[in-house]
Amino acid sequence: MAQHSEHSSNVDLDEIDRIIIDELVANARISNATLAQRAGIAPSTALLRTRSLVERGILTGYHAEVALGTVGRTVQALISVKLRAHDREKIDTFVERIPSLPEVLSMFHVSGGTDYLLHIAVGSTDHLRDWVLDNLATDESVGHTETTLVFAHHRGNRGPLPSDDMLS
């Protein structure tokens, strides 16, 4: 599985780029004609601009989002993981194995007292308990875990921040 890492860089985005990004973040299935209309440009220009955003690594993919509860994944949790030792081989094995498990929605490498934060979704609290026992508690590289149940998830802004001139 390919590893995705976000690196910050100062990429110049003009107003048209920002409109295209905002529209695609809101609805990745928007037609090119509608996208062009909302950006105030020709459809051929919208297509070229969108391709440029992909080639520049600004748009990294398009996806479908599943309502997890409708497919039996009604329990979500955030699990803090502190590794026992910081051995590169064990870390690499952990980082390769955990995100590939079907229950894992996201894995974050974080600073502070925790090394990793996992976001998982399962069918029940019993499944959650068993998952932690089977995949973390029995892993020799894991020293400590702490599980927090998610009651609600509210998605934030997934597009770029407004530019300074857009704020005034």
Score class of each variant (00 low, 15 high):
Lys82Gly: 09
Pro102Val: 11
Asn27Lys: 04
Gly72Val: 01
Ser163Gln: 11
Thr125Phe: 14
Ala2Thr: 07
Lys90Gly: 03
Ile91Ala: 09
Thr45Ala: 07
Asp165Gln: 06
Ala2Gly: 11
Leu13Ile: 05
Thr145His: 03
Val54Gly: 00
Leu59Tyr: 04
Phe151Thr: 08
Ile91Asn: 09
Ala67Gly: 00
Leu24Gly: 04
Ala42His: 05
Pro160Lys: 09
Pro160Phe: 12
Pro160Thr: 13
Asp12His: 14
Ile91His: 05
His119Asp: 11
Gln3Tyr: 10
Arg56Pro: 02
Leu48Thr: 02
Ala64Glu: 03
Ala36Met: 04
Asn32Gly: 14
Gly40Met: 06
Arg155Phe: 09
Ala64Pro: 01
Asn32Glu: 15
Arg73Phe: 11
Trp131Ala: 05
Arg129Ser: 10
Glu140Ala: 02
Ala33Arg: 12
Trp131Ile: 10
Ser5Val: 06
Ile20Phe: 03
Ser31Ala: 09
Val150Tyr: 00
Arg158Gln: 14
Arg84Phe: 15
Gln3Trp: 10
Val81Ile: 06
Arg158Met: 11
Val71Trp: 03
Asp165Trp: 03
Ile30Pro: 11
Ala42Cys: 01
Ser100Ala: 10
Thr74His: 05
Ala85Leu: 08
Leu149Glu: 12
Leu105Lys: 09
Gly72Trp: 01
Ala85Arg: 13
Glu55His: 12
Thr147Lys: 08
Ser8Thr: 14
Lys90Gln: 07
Arg56Lys: 11
Gly57Arg: 04
Thr114Gly: 04
Leu59Ser: 00
Asp17Ile: 02
Asp139Phe: 06
His154Val: 11
Pro162Arg: 15
Tyr62Cys: 08
Met166Val: 02
Ala26Ile: 09
Asp139Asn: 10
Asp134Thr: 10
Tyr116Gln: 05
Thr148Arg: 15
Thr60Trp: 04
Pro102Gly: 09
Thr70Pro: 00
Leu53Pro: 01
Asn157Gly: 13
Arg97Pro: 11
Asn157Thr: 10
Phe151Ala: 11
Thr34Pro: 02
Val110Lys: 00
Ala46Cys: 07
Arg38His: 13
Pro162Lys: 14
Ile19Met: 02
Arg97Ser: 07
Gly57Ala: 05
Leu59Gly: 00
Thr70Asp: 07
Glu15Asp: 15
Gly72Leu: 00
